[in-house]
């Protein structure tokens, strides 16, 4: 490529930053930058602007916890629609002319797309659509009922869930699982925590998933001691605030203990104001021993955990 002037180089700087130039042009720009302080300064400025935008957006994403619940709701709804409405399934498309993926997406008909929220109001009548809607609402209400039932009939805390893991296992098996698509490692990674190893206490880990208690998000780590379930919940700052309504005296690094019939519950918040909650048919000593194995003030712990990421 011929030598370019500053104005021409300036127009290539964006693409240079994103490595979108061909090798020859990249070299031309790099050579120019070595000699031209003005263009070098311009590049530094553009880099800085890009970094600031990324950083601002990243901060907002970290702080906007509503994204997590909105995404969960949408996924649950889409799954329920897929389960209810087999017409949208790939097998029902076999009579259609095969088309390129992008083209098909562009030309997709909206005839059998059912939407909630503002779109509900715009939906024309139709038995099929109403039935689909009724069925998905029924799923939502049944789930809410189940959660309410377990949290109110077996004690003020999440003892119903902790005592037998029954509700969580139902969620695991149902099509409205909140964690589908996430591996165990992924969920731990996005929440910046390491799996507490409790084998030395005879407590073995077997599963984990995002769980909601008191409408606050927890990461539910499911363990077993023999045949008895042991639950360890990891909660965000948001969760702590919610739980403080029930247990006002949760203080950082101090274990709170509560006995509910055969269930021993321990709650402890970290200096970063995240929360660990332990529940199971355990003794106080066992709760203490488990607590000592939990990462309390890890430097990797973020200010805001990203449950349900």
């Amino acid at each position: 490529m011929n030598l370019l002037n500053c104005h021409q180089i300036n127009e290539l700087l964006s693409a240079y930053l994103e490595n979108e130039l061909d090798p020859t042009t990249t070299l031309t720009v790099a050579n120019h930058l070595e000699k031209c302080s003005l263009c070098e300064r311009e590049l530094a400025f553009l880099t800085n602007v890009s970094n600031l935008v990324r950083s601002a957006v990243e901060q907002i994403d970290k702080q906007d916890l509503s994204l997590i619940s909105r995404a969960s709701t949408i996924n649950a709804y889409v799954k329920s629609q897929i389960a209810i409405n087999p017409q949208t399934s790939p097998q029902a498309q076999t009579s259609q002319t095969p088309v390129n993926s992008y083209t098909s997406a562009e030309t997709a008909s909206t005839n059998n797309v059912v939407r909630l929220n503002t779109h509900q109001r715009r939906l024309a009548g139709g038995k099929k659509i109403l039935l689909s809607l009724a069925a998905s609402l029924a799923i939502v209400f049944l789930s809410l009922f189940a959660i309410t039932y377990y949290s109110t009939t077996t004690g003020p805390l999440m003892s119903g869930v902790a005592r037998n893991h029954q509700l969580c296992n139902v969620i695991e098996l149902s099509n409205i699982g909140w964690h589908k698509g996430h591996s165990t490692e992924n969920l731990l990674e996005v929440n910046n925590i390491k799996l507490p190893q409790l084998n030395s206490l005879g407590i073995e880990f077997y599963n984990l998933h995002p769980c909601k208690v008191y409408n606050a998000p927890f990461l539910h780590l499911m363990y077993k001691k023999g045949n008895k379930p042991v639950s360890i919940y990891y909660g965000s700052e948001n969760t702590v605030a919610k739980l403080k309504e029930t247990i006002p005296n949760i203080v950082p690094n101090k274990l709170y203990l509560q006995q509910e019939s055969d269930l021993q519950i321990g709650a402890i918040s970290t200096l970063k104001n995240n929360l660990w909650l332990i529940a199971g048919q355990l003794t106080e000593q066992e709760i203490n021993a488990i607590t000592s194995q939990l990462p309390m003030n890890s430097s990797s712990e973020t200010e805001q955990s990203q449950l349900f990421h």
């Binding site: 996924n75 889409v78 399934s89 790939p90 498309q93 993926s101 098909s104 909206t110 797309v113 939407r115």
Partner: peptide
């Protein structure tokens, strides 16, 4: 929501 429903509809492509 509509994106995902549409994606499922054309998932075979």
């Amino acid at each position: 929501q509509e994106t995902l429903l549409r994606a499922w509809k054309y998932w075979h492509t």
